[in-house]
Structure formats: structure tokens, C-alpha cells
Amino acid sequence: MTGGEFIVRLAQIWLTAGAVTGALFLTIGMDRIDEDARGAYVFRPLLVPAVLLIWPLVLWRWFVLETGRDNWAARHRPPRKQHLVVAIVLAGLILISLTAGLMVRQSWPGDVAPEQLTRAVGEGQ
């Protein structure tokens, strides 16, 4: 199995686990932990892609809500402090990417001529 095939296989396993989680969560779990979801079915297919992708997070939140461990105060603490750090890191990465990309950029060296270094054995001098 090549490296690429290995990663593809891992992705398949991840998505399969997501499908199993989704089947349980969207039919049983949701109604238990969110009263707004009871009786609402049309929107559920929209949630399938997310469960496939972030199923560990879904399982964790399901566990937290199911066991009454949800902390109401934490719901009102937005991650605002990171704004400045994120802005500076993002700006830095953009600058580095563009500078690096433009620095290694090549133009067709059309003016460089082929150069014969040695003549073939047996060829006239």
C-alpha cells in the first residue's frame, strides 16, 4: 500500500465512523439533547456532512449534554482575545507565502544557449 492509498483508506475509515455516528445521532441522539429538534426532520439531512467530518466532536458534545455536564457560563465566553494574535499570524503567513512564491518564481531562460562540453569519442577534433 502506498502512502497515498494509506491516507485514502484512513479517510474512508473516518467517514465510515462518521456515518455510524450520524445514523445514531440524527435518529436518536438529537431528540434527547435538543428540544428544538423534536418534530423537526426536514433539516436533518443538512447535518449529515458535518457529522461525517467532525464526529468525535459530535460524540463529545452529545456526552456532555446527555450527562448534564454543560456549563452555561461557558456558552457566553467568545474567543475574542485571539483576534490580535490571529490577525498578526495571518498577515505574517500571507506575507511569507507571497514573498516566497514570488522569490522562487522563474522566467523562461530563453537566452541561455546549449553548450557543448566535450565532443563524442571518435568525433573529429
Binding site: I33, D34, D36, A37, F43, L47, A50, L57, V58, R61, L65, D70, A74, R75, H76, R77, P78, P79
Partner: peptide, 10 residues
Amino acid sequence: FWLKFLTPPV
């Protein structure tokens, strides 16, 4: 749904 389920900060 995801906002409410995951909580806004998450």
C-alpha cells in the same frame, strides 16, 4: 443547530 449544539465559543 451546530451553534446551539457545539456552543457558540466552540
